[in-house]
Design a protein around this nucleic acid. Structure first.
Lengths: 164, 164
DNA sequence: TATTGTTATACTCTATAACTATA
DNA sequence: TATAGTTATAGAGTATAACAATA
């Protein structure tokens, strides 16, 4: 059973009403919202496709690159370390969704690409995924969704800059 | 090394320019933003405090409940299953941050509460946490942060309702 | 019988570092 | 020497289900 009555972690910092801790509050709300949704999405990915979220993420990157991607590039895009990409790819390869190849011009490189089966599966996964999210966000009007979308980009870019 | 040049998963669904897949796009952006920030936060929690994010979350819940919380309640608030709460608490108890007690009026129940050491540690963790987030969100103006905060609540409530 | 936690299990993810092959 | 991946390792998180103690 999913414990969906979760109380917000953010309330701790909400106690001081004059707080200038908006950043922390936003982060905690972001975290709990994402956790709430991602538990549901992961549960459905697993039960309907036997897949995990990192696997979905990786497949999605490959789906839009018919020529495939080097593992190093995949690592950057999925924010998964090089060493762990190997394990992820191996599981997906064992399932028959991904194939690895080494180009002749540089034998150090490994390029991963989707198999036909991988493309077919991912296509179904993406479609299901989309309908789950439409459902979960049904009470938020489209204009607000677009607004948050734009604002999240600002936030993400700020975080990126302050990591570098 | 952290791969911070992550490209958005969302671009897949951005290909169809007339898309009505705003919900999925928002979800993917939410996910990648949260992942970006949480990798950094987890890294610092670990290096500076030897703690994980789920541990931080659990400690935070206890911090605001001087009388402690039943494990079942902790499970709901942290969105961690009962069985896994046991393991989390055991690690925190071994560190000396948490104590478990069984009330006499109902011997089935276990109440967890922070030790004095746990309170002291969490207080430092929360303060550091706050400054990390202030830093990461430095480029987003306070008004926008408050706006997103409010909008995230709408989103979270929508998700909650459509899970029940 | 229902509730509260615990135990057991299996798998995946995460982070770090050492290592191999190739350039 | 530098780069691209792989291997190894250790520790946690996650989900499920069976189980024990108590009500």
């Amino acid at each position: 059973m999913l414990p969906i009555m979760a109380v917000d972690l953010e309330i701790i910092v909400n106690d001081t009403h004059d707080s200038n801790k908006q950043e922390l509050r936003l982060w905690l709300r972001l975290l709990s919202t994402t956790k709430l949704i991602s538990q549901e999405v992961r549960r459905r990915l697993r039960s309907e496709f036997g897949a995990t979220l990192p696997q979905f993420d990786l497949l999605a990157q490959l789906y839009r690159e018919p020529e495939g991607l080097r593992l190093g590039e995949l690592s950057k895009r999925t924010m998964v370390t090089n060493g762990n990409i190997t394990g992820l790819i191996e599981r997906l390869e064992a399932d028959g969704f991904v194939r690895r190849e080494t180009p002749d011009d540089d034998r150090r490189v490994t390029v991963a690409r989707l198999t036909d089966e991988g493309k077919a599966i991912f296509s179904r996964m993406a479609e299901a995924h989309e309908s789950w999210l439409r459902d979960l966000m049904a009470d938020v009007d489209p204009a607000t969704i677009r607004t948050i979308l734009a604002e999240m980009e600002l936030l993400k870019n700020s975080a990126k800059r302050h990591l570098s």
